[in-house]
């Protein structure tokens, strides 16, 4: 991997990091276990490594944003996650923040594109 590619990869991961939490919280308004959550995110175009997603769920649970429960499904014990009321409140705030950032960046890019043309 060249230096530029490495730099791009680091910046890309940095850019995705904040969005992942938002996407996970959004998905977990509906109860899911780790693997189905990962599939749902991938189906929406946000593929995440197992080594990133599963520990992230633990951290969000430790922060009180998610609640989990072990339950048997298809003859296998699985840990199901769902967003908590605190998580839902924080999600609404984060979503508003993300939308504001998105609008600002879009506007900046539109202005730059306009300048270039």
């Amino acid at each position: 991997m060249t230096l530029t590619e490495n730099l791009f990869e680091n910046l890309r991961l940095e850019l995705r990091r904040g969005c992942l939490t938002l996407a996970v919280l959004a998905q977990l308004h509906e109860e899911r276990y780790g693997y189905t959550l990962r599939k749902a995110l991938a189906d929406d175009g946000l593929a995440i490594d197992e080594s990133t997603l599963y520990p992230l769920l633990r951290r969000l649970e430790a922060q009180g944003l998610l609640a989990s429960e072990w339950r048997e499904e298809e003859k296998r014990n699985k840990r199901f996650y769902r967003i908590t009321p605190d998580g839902a409140q924080l999600f609404a705030q984060l979503l508003a923040e993300w939308q504001a950032i998105n609008a600002s960046v879009t506007e900046t890019l539109r202005a730059r594109t306009g300048d270039a043309q």
């Binding site: 276990y33 780790g34 693997y35 189905t36 990962r38 197992e50 599963y54 633990r58 296998r76 014990n77 699985k78 840990r79």
Partner: peptide, 12 residues
């Protein structure tokens, strides 16, 4: 952690 990881990976 291992129990959860096993369930997810086995499902996959």
């Amino acid at each position: 952690i291992i129990a959860e990881l096993r369930a997810n990976l086995e499902a996959q």
